[in-house]
């Protein structure tokens, strides 16, 4: 039984957590934006920009963590543009988001071509290494998965935990959620809906960029065109699948990563000899659509999602 072998292998579970990590960063980023009332379709491009910015910073000689910071700042800059255009100016979140995706993607490709005009094979950096937690890593099946990841993976889990705590346990989180549900109530409290929403988009976009940077700085060690490959759109589906709750969204990301890791391994088995590889590659996208369909009936969409707030309008 191929399937049993795969499910019992330590490398499978390690891959699940690894594949889930960038999705967790970016899904948390999107979730923060949407809870504040802003759909951020810039996610795909911001991930590309983050993947490039973090990688090129390290390639230029900065330490790895500085690379993460650079990626985050680049993501926040694009988030600021998105936030200013969609929140105070109230422009279509669909159009601005897609525009940001095109802009960020093209900017990353342009910068890559300027920085490395002559290369044919993408140069490599020394990426984040898996941590060694001694005997914990040697636990059969799950040891590597839980204790043999790179520091960025643990950061992703911390970010998810912090997102949950801030959203549900702090006044800031309450204000942010209210901005996405009932903005006039926030304004009645003397808080600025505009400020909260722009802040959420900026922070969320920073997280998306770190998710992108995970790809070039932890999962792989080079920057390729097309490397984000729809992961951003999948994260938007994961937010819906997780019913806008951080915990459920992380579970969704893990589940999704499980199927993704499984399809890669199934390609190597007898099944892969019969079924064209493209069918396996379709699985993640089809699953995302299925997830949306399954969750559509009981989704608790933030009431003011995609509704611009103009003070004084009733």
């Amino acid at each position: 039984m191929d399937l049993i072998d795969i499910l019992l292998s330590a490398s499978f579970w390690a891959a699940v957590i690894r594949i889930a990590s960038p999705l967790i960063f970016a899904t948390m980023g999107e979730l923060i934006c949407e809870r504040a009332g802003v759909l951020n379709l810039g996610i795909e491009g911001i991930m590309v920009a983050g993947a490039f910015a973090g990688w090129v910073a390290v390639y230029a000689g900065l330490p790895l963590w500085w690379g993460v910071a650079v990626a985050m700042l680049v993501g926040m800059a694009f988030g600021l543009v998105h936030g200013v255009l969609t929140v105070p100016f109230g422009l279509s979140q669909h159009v601005v988001g897609l525009g940001i995706t095109m802009l960020a993607t093209a900017a990353a490709y342009y910068a890559y071509r300027i920085a490395l005009p002559e290369v044919t094979t993408p140069p490599r950096i020394e990426p984040f290494q898996p941590l060694d937690m001694g005997w914990l890593t040697d636990i059969p099946v799950v040891g590597q998965a839980l204790f043999g990841q790179t520091a960025l993976t643990y950061l992703a889990l911390l970010v998810a935990l912090a997102t949950g705590l801030v959203l549900y346990r702090t006044p800031l989180g309450l204000a942010l959620r209210a901005a996405g549900e009932n903005p006039s109530a926030v304004e009645a409290q003397g808080l600025s809906v505009t400020g909260i929403r722009i802040g959420a988009v900026v922070v969320g976009s920073g997280l998306m960029a770190v998710g992108g940077a995970f790809l070039t700085m932890s999962a792989f060690s080079s920057f390729f065109f097309e490397m984000v490959n729809g992961r951003g759109w999948i994260c938007i589906a994961l937010v819906v699948f997780g019913a806008w709750a951080p915990g459920k969204a992380v579970l969704g990301a893990l589940l999704f990563a499980g199927f993704d890791a499984l399809q890669i391994r199934l390609q190597q088995t007898g099944l892969g000899a019969v079924v064209p590889y493209q069918v396996f590659l379709m699985v993640p996208y089809i699953l995302s659509i299925l997830a949306l369909v399954l969750m559509s009936r009981r989704a608790e969409v933030p009431a003011a999602l995609m509704t611009p707030y103009n003070r004084g309008e009733r």
Partner: peptide, 14 residues
């Protein structure tokens, strides 16, 4: 079913 078409049409491209 009320499924958002932005994501489904995007994913169908892939």
């Amino acid at each position: 079913l009320g499924v958002d078409e932005v994501v489904t049409t995007l994913l169908l491209n892939f």
